[in-house]
Design a protein around this nucleic acid. Structure first.
Length: 129
RNA sequence: AUAGCAGACUUAUCUUAUCGUCCCAAAUUUGUUUGGGAAGGAAAGUCCGGACACCAAAGAGUAAGUAUAGCGGAUAACAUCCGUCCAACGUAAGUUGAGGACAAGUGCAACAGAAAGAAUGUACAGUUAGGCUGUAGUGAAACCAGGUAAACUCUAUACGGUGCAAUGCCAUGUAUAUUAGAGCUUGAGAGCUACUCGCUCGAUUCUAAAGGGUAGGCAGAUAGAUUCUAAGAGUAAUUUUAGAACUAGAUAAAUGAUAAGAACCUUUUAAUAAGGAUACAGAAUUCGGCUUAUUAGUCUGCUUUUUUU
C-alpha cells in the first residue's frame, strides 16, 4: 500500500458531492464528521474523499487551507484502514466541525477513530442484509 | 549625542532526511521513473483607471446622472504620480489642503441689534402736505460688487452597459423557446436607463436544419503597457536605445506533514546550558494605482537643541 493521494482519489465532481449531501449517512469523532455514500464514482480506487472546512468557523482563507491540508495528510496516512475492508466503491466528505485548530497528533488519532467507526458502520449494515 | 522629518531597501526564517500534492519536459515495459518549476508585499478590501470580451455597425445628438477641479507636465488611462504657486500648521526639516465661480438665481448665518432683507424703530438735524435725506447707536457686514458652493446651483472637462460564472468550441441530449429559406402581414411591439435620429428584428403559415438549460471537457489562461543591467534625454514623474532573462497556473481548487540541526532575541558560563519570539496573511483573466492589516532590521538625505575644535 502506497501512501499517496492523487487526483483520482479526491472527490471532485460537483454532482457526486450534491448527491452525497442529500443521501449520505454520517459518523462523528469530534472535531471531525464524515459523510459517506456507497455509489459508483469516476475512478478505479476503492473510494474518493474530499475535505471541507466551513467558512463560518474560520474566516481567513489561510486557516481553512491549513486545516484542509492537515486533514488530507492524516487521511493519506491512514486510508488503508478503509481500503482494506470495503469491497464496494464509496465516496466521503470529511468535514471539520470544530471551531479551533487542533494539533497534528490529536487530529491523527481522531482520524483513526473516525475511519474505524466508519468501518464498523459498514460492517453492521452488511450484516443486516 | 539628543529629539525629529522624509525616502529607499532586505528577510518575510533557512538546511537536511522521510512521506506526499500540482504543473511542464524527457524516457517508458503505460505500472511508473528522471529532471525542472510552484503564493504576496500587501496575493486582501474590490475603491478608481485600463487591456480583453460580448451586448444592435456599440453609431450620433439632447437631457438626466456620476466623477474631477490653482497652474504646468507624465502616462494606455486614472481620483495615480511629478514639478510649482498659494493657504493653514510647525523653531525647522517638512506635513496637510474637496485650493474654479457668491458681479445669474435660490437658500443659510451664533451673539449684539428695531431690522441680516416684503425691515424702515429711537434721538437729533435739514427740508416739508404726506414724507424724504443725513448723522448717531449694534455688528465682521446695514441695499450693497459683505460671508458661505465637504448649500442647492453655475462653469469647464470626462464618462454607453455588463463583466472571464465574459465569450468561443466539443460532448451529452428532453419540452419546442432556436436557426435558415419561402409566403402572408406593412406593422402591435421588441432589441441592456429616458427622449430624438439611425440600424436590426418582428405576430401567423409551410419546408428544412440544428439544438436551450445543465460549470462535464477544451480554449480564453499565463511572454507581458514584463523583469534586470548599461548608456542617453528630462529638475522630476517618466521616457529612448542596446543587451540579457523567462518568473505559479490550481479549478471541491496544488504549493504540505513529521523529525533533527542552524540562525534570531534574553539570561548565564571556561566550553555551554536554559527559556522565548517567529507578524499580517493564501494566487484564481490580467496590468497600473489607491486604501487597509502587519514582524524584524539595514541604509541614505535633512532639520532642531547641546558640547568640542
Amino acid at each position: 500500500m502506497k501512501y499517496t493521494l492523487g487526483k483520482e482519489e479526491r472527490l471532485k465532481s460537483r454532482k457526486l458531492i450534491e448527491k452525497l449531501y442529500q443521501e449520505g449517512n454520517s459518523v462523528k469523532a469530534f472535531p471531525l464528521r464524515m459523510i459517506f455514500l456507497q455509489t459508483q464514482h469516476t475512478s478505479n480506487y476503492p473510494a474518493q474523499a474530499g475535505v471541507s472546512v466551513p467558512k463560518r468557523n474560520f474566516k481567513l482563507a489561510v486557516d481553512r487551507n491549513r486545516i484542509k491540508r492537515l486533514l488530507r495528510e492524516t487521511y493519506r496516512l491512514q486510508k488503508h484502514i478503509v481500503y482494506d475492508t470495503i469491497d464496494q466503491p464509496y465516496i466521503f466528505m470529511i468535514s471539520y466541525i470544530g471551531k479551533e485548530e487542533w494539533k497534528y497528533e490529536e487530529l491523527f488519532s481522531k482520524m483513526e477513530k473516525l475511519l474505524t467507526l466508519f468501518v464498523n458502520e459498514t460492517k453492521n449494515t452488511k450484516d443486516e442484509h
